[in-house]
Design a protein around this nucleic acid. Structure first.
Lengths: 106, 106
DNA sequence: TTGATACATTGAAATGTATCTATGTTTATG
DNA sequence: CATAAACATAGATACATTTCAATGTATCAA
């Protein structure tokens, strides 16, 4: 199973600064220097965190002149929540349409 | 904000073995020895992982004789998904009823 | 009581992560 | 061209995490 890939994505949200960044982007795109003002960290540290968020697919970005513009990826967060839901769920709330099928007849 | 607590909970799912455990428990409770057979790890390592999952609230447990019985916490996974949803989401899918209110008039 | 089973705890080694300073790269401006 | 601004990269340090062997604890059965 692709646990390794999923672990890597989930790790994108296991840092206080990265959670703050996700909230900061929730109402629209921002550039790195905007984020730097809100987050008591240095520029290389922000750069490090943005790379992790972008790699996870949660955050989109594009370069315009010297500025990097960051924003939440609508597809990224939807897929992320679906992935989380495949682990953080129990049988009692299982919908047959998304059953894993492991108990079905052969 | 309670980023530290949330990071701690999310970290519960940032390990391949713990993801495997969540899937293994998805159709009902199991004891530690059942899990040990499915997961190529030693008993102390399983004990370590079960403590982390239990502390996060994702997994419930009770002791019966020498056995520990583990199961998914229905409340735990629902709250976990809600918490994830508060970070992994974008403005374009914001429902006013759960708006953070940061742009409202004073 | 003795032995076996299920699980927890301790301590150590290996690996991974977050952060900073220093420096490099790219782009715009005077 | 020289300078400054925005960002990336490299290297170092401190800290956290995963894992196992060794050992401890609790429970049951003979």
């Amino acid at each position: 199973m692709g646990f390794r890939e999923d672990v890597k994505k989930i790790k994108a949200l296991t840092d206080e600064n990265r959670l703050a960044i996700m909230l900061a982007l929730q109402h629209g795109e921002k550039c790195g220097c905007d984020l730097l003002e809100e987050l008591n960290i240095t520029q290389p540290t922000l750069s490090h965190h943005m790379k992790i968020l972008a790699d996870s697919g949660l955050v989109d970005y594009y370069k315009e002149g010297k500025w990097m513009h960051y924003s939440i990826s609508a597809d990224g967060v939807r897929e992320f929540r679906d992935m989380i839901g495949s682990y953080a769920r129990c049988d009692c709330e299982t919908d047959e349409s998304v059953s894993c099928g492991c108990r079905e007849k052969k």
